[in-house]
């Protein structure tokens, strides 16, 4: 129960400091879970993220459920998810109720233009830190390059890319296994 309460609080912090979509959660998770608490490694974070990408629903929610489950079973998964969605729900209700013209204030629009630049930089930095570990050898670097090009320039569907990368991982291991034996 205490573990579940802690998960709720930690993910509430994550929920309130994540600006943007599923990918914006990565720098926050990297800081809160990997660096500060040692709950997961960079590799595990990327594993969770890969699973979250190809399961239905909101990516950040899927990642949180996964980490919560690893920490404290089904209760942990539910606690982490509720923690993550609690602060945004409150904020949205306040905005919808009191500040319906909020988004049209010029100051708000300028502020968010600045925030978007910052989110970009934070994600790029996290990514740079993860790159070495996520692509340690030549086949992994090849997968990284191929997926990046197919996704960024040719807009291939994400779920298909994740599935193909999984098959590629299998094929590489099979090829290596054959050679070593």
């Amino acid at each position: 129960m205490r573990e579940a309460a802690l998960l709720f609080l930690v993910f509430a912090r994550v929920g309130i400091t994540t600006f943007g979509g599923g990918y914006a959660i990565m720098p926050v998770l990297d800081r809160e879970l990997v660096k500060k608490r040692g709950w997961a490694s960079h590799e595990e974070l990327l594993d969770y993220y890969a699973v979250a990408q190809c399961t239905p629903g909101v990516i950040a929610v899927n990642t949180s459920t996964f980490i919560g489950y690893r920490r404290a079973g089904v209760t942990g998964g539910i606690a982490a998810t509720l923690g993550l969605v609690f602060p945004p729900t409150v904020i949205i209700c306040v905005i919808a109720a009191a500040l319906s013209g909020f988004m049209y204030l010029p100051a708000v629009r300028h502020a968010f233009a600045g925030i978007r630049v910052c989110v970009c930089v934070l994600i790029a930095k996290t990514l740079a830190g993860m790159l070495k570990k996520s692509a340690p050898d030549l086949p992994a670097k090849a997968i990284f390059t191929a997926v990046f090009i197919l996704s960024a320039f040719l807009s291939f569907p994400t779920a298909a890319l994740v599935a193909a990368a999984g098959v590629a991982g299998l094929a590489i291991s099979a090829a290596r296994g054959g050679r070593v034996k």
Partner: peptide
Amino acid sequence: QSVFRGLRPASAALIASACFSLITTV
């Protein structure tokens, strides 16, 4: 484990791609 060896670089690449499109928009 083999599957995840393929998924990890793909996962990083997908974040890179999302970041790239965000940068171009900004």
